[in-house]
């Protein structure tokens, strides 16, 4: 799973896609996932972080994670492999 390479991600939770001119906003959890993806972390590593830091069970996290990734795909922010 790789993010599009040129996305500009700000610490305030704002993504700008220079190839389309679209902007997106994220909540805290979304921002963390996007930053991890940018660093090249995989789903397991991201999951581990959330299970350690947040009061959340594995199923609920995976469910939310999948939904979030589907939205990244929906907005064409994931690189096609």
């Amino acid at each position: 799973m790789k993010l599009k390479p040129k996305l500009a991600i700000s610490d305030s939770g704002f993504i700008f896609d220079p190839s389309t001119g679209e902007s997106y906003s994220l909540n805290e959890e979304g921002l963390i996932i996007v930053q991890f993806l940018k660093e090249g972390k995989n789903e397991e590593e991201i999951k581990e972080h959330f299970l350690n830091e947040y009061d959340i069970d594995e199923t609920t996290f995976s469910r939310s994670y999948l939904d979030f990734i589907s939205m990244l795909k929906h907005f064409n922010l994931i690189e096609h492999e």
């Binding site: 305030s12 704002f14 902007s23």
Partner: peptide
């Protein structure tokens, strides 16, 4: 500049 729009939209 994009930054102004971004600052307004997030803050």
């Amino acid at each position: 500049p994009m930054e102004q729009f971004q600052i307004l939209s997030t803050t």
